[in-house]
Design a binder for these strands. Structure first.
Length: 288
DNA sequence: CATCAGGACACAG
DNA sequence: CTGTGTCCTGAT
């Protein structure tokens, strides 16, 4: 590994917000190396990140090297993050304000779409540790060894040659069929995901939903965490509960909740979703 | 031993 | 368009 270096852009963070960013359900390829550091990979590059002295330090594998610019981009550490947070309606929304205050520096990761889609295809009716394990097993069996007990995402081309039965044995269950189905489509049209990432949010979402195993929730997760589409607002059971309790939306169905979110939280509603999601998950939202 | 989980899908009404 | 059963598997 390279020597530790300080990430110049990293300011106004918290350990809690940073930890939630890496292991709060956006990505499934980060592993703790201490109380305050994690090692992980994206695009087959290996990075270790450490929270210290209210900022972030990083080092990278010499063989599978990432640049500082890539890391800043991955972690959304440029100034556009601050203005996105500032754009959220925290001044008039005390629930959101509580979450933002409790989780300084919580960001949306800018992950590769192909990897993110894979993660969330495996996510249905699974907990974070279970998703992580399944992702790890597939990468270990079909991906490239990156050292440090890490394996890179195999890519859809490779996955298109894997039998459904093999994936089922790696704890994917009925999701194995989805992975094979998506792999086949992407193998026939390798530019499919690239095209999607250039489309406006709604069109991108409809195209993703046409893939097997991808419904509204998973499409929104793929777009928010894998295409930096902060307009996407994934409605899972957690956020659904949060909206029911704190915004009195018990009678709203998921589609109505998305419409409410877009109109109430604005064009960065996906970022608001992440604050609320983590706030709810960690029990940080106090009732008035 | 039954139920449910950070869903999707097929099918019925 | 809304409502329900089914699908893998592990945890409770």
């Amino acid at each position: 590994m390279s020597p530790w270096k300080e990430l110049i852009e990293a300011r106004n963070l918290s350990l809690l917000g940073f930890r939630e960013t890496l292991e709060g359900g956006q990505s499934f390829s980060w592993y703790p190396t201490s109380e305050t550091s994690w090692i992980g990979s994206f695009k087959s590059k290996v990075v270790e990140l450490k929270f210290s002295d209210n900022t972030i330090f990083w080092r990278t594998s010499l063989k599978h090297k990432a640049s500082e610019a890539e890391i800043i981009n991955y972690l959304w550490l440029d100034k556009s993050y601050e203005s996105a947070v500032n754009n959220l309606p925290w001044r008039s929304d005390s629930v959101l304000a509580q979450c933002i205050q409790a989780l300084p520096g919580l960001t949306i990761l800018n992950q590769p779409l192909e990897e993110t889609l894979f993660y969330f295809l495996l996510s249905s009716a699974k907990s974070i540790p279970q998703i992580k394990e399944a992702v790890f097993l597939v990468c270990k069996n079909f991906g490239t060894p990156l050292g440090n007990n890490l394996w890179g995402f195999p890519g859809w081309q490779v996955l298109s040659e894997v039998e459904e039965k093999e994936l089922r044995e790696l704890k994917l269950g009925y999701r194995a069929k989805y992975v094979c189905g998506v792999a086949k489509i992407l193998q026939e049209d390798p530019a499919y995901l690239k095209k999607i990432s250039r489309l406006p949010y709604q069109e991108a979402k409809s195209k993703l939903i046409s893939l097997p195993g991808v419904g509204p929730k998973i499409a929104d997760c793929a777009l928010l965490f894998g295409a930096k589409q902060t307009e996407a607002f994934p409605v899972d059971t957690w956020i659904s509960k949060t909206l029911d309790i704190h915004y009195n939306l018990e009678s709203f169905n998921p589609v109505q909740k998305i419409i409410f979110a877009r109109s109430h939280f604005g064009k960065f509603c996906g970022l608001a979703q992440q604050f609320l999601f983590s706030g709810e998950r960690l029990g940080l939202i106090k009732l008035n």
